[in-house]
Design a protein around this nucleic acid. Sequence first.
RNA 1: GCGGGCGUGGCGGAAUUGGUAGACGCAAGGGGCUUAAAACCCCUCGUCCGUCAAGGACUUACGGGUUCGAGUCCCGUCGCCCGCACCA
Length: 864
Amino acid sequence: MAIERYNAPAREKHWQHVWESRNVFKASNDDKRPKSYVLEMFPYPSGRIHMGHVRNYTMGDVLARYKRAKGFNVLHPMGWDAFGMPAENAAMERKTHPAKWTYDNIAAMRAQLKSMGLSLDWSREFATCDVEYYHQQQKLFLDFYKKGLAYRGIGKVNWDPVDQTVLANEQVIDGRGWRSGALVETREMPVWYFKITEYADELLDALGDLSRWPEKVRTMQANWIGRSEGLLMKYALSGDRLPSGWQELEVFTTRADTIFGGSFCALSPGHPLTLELAKSDPELAAFVEECSHIGTSEEELNRVEKKGFNTGLAATHPLIPGRKLPVFVANFVLMGYGTGAIFGCPAHDQRDFEFATKYELPITPVVIPEGQDPATFDLGGEAYDGPGRIANSDFLNGLSIDEAKAEIAQRMEEIGKGERRIMYRLRDWGISRQRYWGCPIPVIHCEACGAVPVPEAQLPVRLPDDVTFDVPGNPLVRHPTWRQVDCPSCGKPAVRDTDTMDTFVDSSWYFARFCSPDSERPVDLEAAKYWLPVDQYIGGIEHAILHLLYSRFFARAMMATGHLNVKEPFAGLFTQGMVTHETYSRSGQWLLPSEVRIEGEGDQRRAFEIATGEPVEIGSIEKMSKSKKNLVDPDDIISSYGADCARWFMLSDSPPERDVIWTEAGVSGASRFMQRVWRLIDEALPKAAPVGTPKPQSFGPDADALRRAAHKTLARVGQNIEALRFNVAVAQIYEFASTLHSALGKTGPGMDWAIREGVELLVQMFGPMMPHLAEECWERLGYNTLLADQPWPTVEEALLVDDTMTIAVQVNGKRRDELTIARDASKAEVEAAALKLEPVIRALEGRPVKKVIVVPQRIVNVVA
RNA sequence: GCGGGCGUGGCGGAAUUGGUAGACGCAAGGGGCUUAAAACCCCUCGUCCGUCAAGGACUUACGGGUUCGAGUCCCGUCGCCCGCACCA
């Protein structure tokens, strides 16, 4: 009699209700067990979850459930990164309030996440736009301010003309805003900064200790911080037109060893001296203007010619008396790095070489490759930046590059013309945003007292509800009364800062808030001490720099202000791959997969639009995106196949760090397996010993073999889950399910007991992955407990070691046969047995055996 | 240019970290069950030679090397992906 198919959608609702009503996943801050904090990057409440979320949260959930079963007190929370521009855009388009739009979206997405059956502690949920959260964030701001870690400065900022806001350097990609894609303009305005550069060195050094972070992310952060050791040098300036106060020019170099090869100095178009000179020099002003139009894309930079403007000023070489170098303004010198001025050594820097060639400046090689004669060494049309010995350089001659650097640094420091300096590419983090939907910066501007922090007793500075979005710009500026306050210092009328914080501030400490989400302080220190750092953080690689670097800074800043006791927030980081799908298009229009019907296989595969029957072009496989419409709605999958099916598919086949291709075939494969397991339980039950049957003293060979397979699989699945190698764990579960299925036909001493054990282990092994099906099976197996509360089964180590071993036998490295022999056989016995094998004798062709290599339990290699 | 990674059947991918290459899944082919289809079950499935046998040769992008033994380590070549980039 055939059993009914497992009705996943219906049963999943049931089990979700059971878990929720019994508070199974609530984490206690007071627990004797070891803790494990598993966190996935929290979502922006856009309105609907997408497959990327499904993948991310499934991985975290498998780990969280596994750790729970392994006896850890697991914290696995969820929240919402809820401030940000889309809410304001929606407000503009739909005449709704950002708060309503956001909280409606949260409600919808919460329901979707719950339908996935995640083992989350929902009691700790919060949104960053909750007043309680941004209130605490304002406290952090004030504490940072007191410590000098937040400051206000007039800065050149990246202004996004479309989003009408300032962007951090990290948010400008190829000269365009990371969200809007608009060309970013440079503006000067007062901005609040977080002093991330304070920790530049430490953020860099500590990367070395993050052994459970991907190498790639660490490298990216290291490059972003961009530390370079060099020499800050002073060149005396002279010239008729030298403005007062500019007796010296500071330049930074990492190649001080080439100082004797210097033939010019160059200023950035943005250098203060350049701007000073340009005031009285229209030609220079025009040149500066021209430079400001150079784009920042790679292609443009390679195309743009090195150009300069001779200021007529001269810089005196600090070590060659009487040697004067011309001072140019050059288009390739960046203001944002070093001092915004360089000394040019054309022989050993390609840019300087091109520049010197154009302006006919001397090109003197001072580093000579080993084996070359300084007198005859020819650069051959390009700068030489390889190793060598110093020449043409007075007291440096004959030294290596490193020796020369050290020597020069010492000499320059002695004569007061230079000092060793470490420069960073990293800039301070500008956090002011001219937007409404963010955390207000708790500062009041008073004409008499300047920028005055809002006293803590007056916090929170709440966002006003009565705002309008009918015109561009910041509604806080336009609000009739919100700005007007009395100065907390002198009591006279003053105005609030109308900027809000970059939303990356919100996400820089949410992981800490989860430890004590109801605390009256940003975090309860005791709770943070217990839970932090996050043991495993999982999210997309796109946050490799921004979010992950800011969070590392925040942990340090919060430690400096007494809020935390850990410097590194995330002990383990895993960056998962994207979810991709085929694209479909018809006459230039993208079509959703659900609008397309596929016929045929392989080369014969054709696609048709369901509505019209028209043929559709099958395009490349790309990341699921709204623009390409290659989206599959998680809701559709969950409501038709079940959450377990979506979860199992996400974990199968593709290694988690790589992209996964979502296919209909893969989904039905996952669904098939669920039904197969369901039937397997049904078939096994009549053959399995009843619950609680004592373990027999001995087992027949078939039962023994089944038990060995079960325990070996159990051991491997555990290892693979811990290593986040879910695809391998899945494969092992498949394999064991098949072994178990074959074993149902076998009998013998202890078989019934072994079958029960096998089925139970199978269910427990896929439990973290398909938790609803597992609960359902657990119940059918005769338990009235929850599988979610069961400990991870214990591996019987004895079963992992077989009495016999099967090893390959090679002749001259080629496999000829295999040999099954007692595990404890001596090398001599193995050798003797191997040499008797017929295929071995044949392969030897009568040649004498020179040597036999026996690696116990691995291999035999007969060398002839 | 700099940095990181990758290259294994028709496809996604395994491979105890130097020890039987191709686990597991998908796709495909054959068979069973069925009036039929779906579902399900069983078998085959890297390439080539050989009768679809016995057996053998080749095979982890390509070319070398180290080693008893290389997908794994080293050198070189080719190709792909990602990140950064006029950073002095």
